[in-house]
Nucleic acid binder design. Sequence first.
DNA 1: CTGAAAGCGCTTACAG
DNA 2: CTGAAAGCGCTTACAG
Lengths: 351, 351
Amino acid sequence: MARATPVPVDGPDGTDAGPARPTIRDVAARAGVSKSLVSLALQNAPRVAPGTRAAILAAADELGYRRNAAAHALVAHRTRTVGVFVLDLHNPMTADVLDAVQAEARRRDYRTIVVVGSDDADAERAELEKLVEFRVEGIIALGHRLPEGADGAIGAACPWVVIGSAHEGIPHLESISTDDEEGAGLVVDHLVTLGHRRIAHVDGGRSSVARDRRRGYRRAMRRHGLQDAVTVERGSFSEEGGYAGARRALEAADPPTALFVVNDLAAIGAMAAVTDRGLAVPQDVSVVGFDGTRLAGMRPLSLTTVGQPLLQMGTQAAARLCGRLDGERLVGSPSRLPPSLVERRTTAPPP
Amino acid sequence: MARATPVPVDGPDGTDAGPARPTIRDVAARAGVSKSLVSLALQNAPRVAPGTRAAILAAADELGYRRNAAAHALVAHRTRTVGVFVLDLHNPMTADVLDAVQAEARRRDYRTIVVVGSDDADAERAELEKLVEFRVEGIIALGHRLPEGADGAIGAACPWVVIGSAHEGIPHLESISTDDEEGAGLVVDHLVTLGHRRIAHVDGGRSSVARDRRRGYRRAMRRHGLQDAVTVERGSFSEEGGYAGARRALEAADPPTALFVVNDLAAIGAMAAVTDRGLAVPQDVSVVGFDGTRLAGMRPLSLTTVGQPLLQMGTQAAARLCGRLDGERLVGSPSRLPPSLVERRTTAPPP
DNA sequence: CTGAAAGCGCTTACAG
DNA sequence: CTGAAAGCGCTTACAG
């Protein structure tokens, strides 16, 4: 089928802006019908005569016609687009969840537009503002903290679903997360069962997830009568943070025999700190992460961690948001999911 | 400053679609001027009286006005949006490059919309079609193969910059990549210098990058007079592929003492295969990856690999594409970048 | 079954 | 300096 080549036009600055895309008008002219009919036929409206429809479809195909999403959005008052805020592309959790989010959104015929978190709060907020200019119909946020401004005007602009951290009392926002406190408890239980008593926690700072995991650690230690052994070293959700926190913990006079680190990525850093100290994992020091990422499962690492159903969380988030946008009646709210301990090869009885 | 709350309206399906966003009209009414003037003032046009401008800006702020990107794109004939095609979110290379791409695009005031590659070729093509409906002004593709349809109508719809694999002869498409063949040569040189002769390659299948790395391996082996030791096992760019390929290589009657694996992710899989065989890395078998990802550098892994300037590649790709869209005169074309060997702890002399 | 008209929210000449 | 009008590419009543 021969495709007519649209004439190249000049762009705003005199450069070649490439071929001017054909419009509904061009299709109408080629098919010898009105614009309205083209629009109808393209939407598969039933009231178009079969022959006419065929002619229109053929003309559209020959011209390589593609609907202009902007024009459509303008009149439809819908964009079928959701924003996805990703705090940290490097966190291995991100790929798993994002994959699931995208797949589910695609399945429901929604487009996603991804914005990445930034150290610069203003830049981050500005990116989010662009999302509201785009008129995304909802936003999915992914990470251990909310993006900058999510609790203000940007937050109110559309419904949100947050994955990975729990937030309450913010209207239009629901969250899907595992019970971080419980997960931390699982870790302590496991280590205590192995015989550890000096269990230190390398934490993730001030975000809500870090807080919950820290609290879970503290409570579990107390539950086991180990309140005197509670040690919290400041870390972060990155490899570097884990390294630094673990290093400090190991330099103590009475160093821990086990390290519970705030997430998998930081736990990798902690493992490096142990090795640098001339110690072996798990013979000398056990290390446990959190998140249950693919990375943790990689054999040369084989990190013991707290598993979360990351794929389901991503799928569920997209399903809830898109479902809501499509007017489905959603019952209940996604409660906190139960975490599970994934025992691998970085934990063993203390020396 | 009190923000007037816009009235909620009903969505297309009777659900609450949230507050109706104020338009330029609402701002005009509140400021007591015409729409045109609002538009002008919002664009910082010089010919608006200072007082009027201030009143307009105040009104806009009070109403929480945000320009409608669709309406703007429709009349501006520009979207200031580029598409980013990401083959594999799980490849650790992706995060590095994507981060740089996004940062540079943002710096130049371009939005990005990410689409993820799929096993389903039709789905992948459909996603790309959506990009043209969105009228993205250009596309950056990231991975070891082009997306489905990039050489057809979708490819011709706008300029492309491909990162990571080299392609020639496709109009409107330029690529930024390292010299894969040379990189592979570096690996073989390094291993030969250590004393290895039985060096096997676990490849990445049929993509262009896989081909170049394979060819580089073969040539270098020949150069060292090791043509008889050439062994290529079929693998892939994923952990699983590396595991399977390495496993097969190690089962040979005369197993290799070194494994050159197509990329870092697959090399991690290969390391697991070595361990499963009851052998140690690097004492019994050396393992080398390719890409120079952050993952490879993580201490518990410390994978010897071929480094590429991933951040620069991402930045350069975005700079070239956006620069071109902004009508900058670009001189030359981004040639292939030189790779470098990053020696870490997975290589040693043969036993 | 088909077409002319109005309008989505903006911008841009064109008058004044 | 400011406003009325036309138009971007589409969809949707409304007539016929």
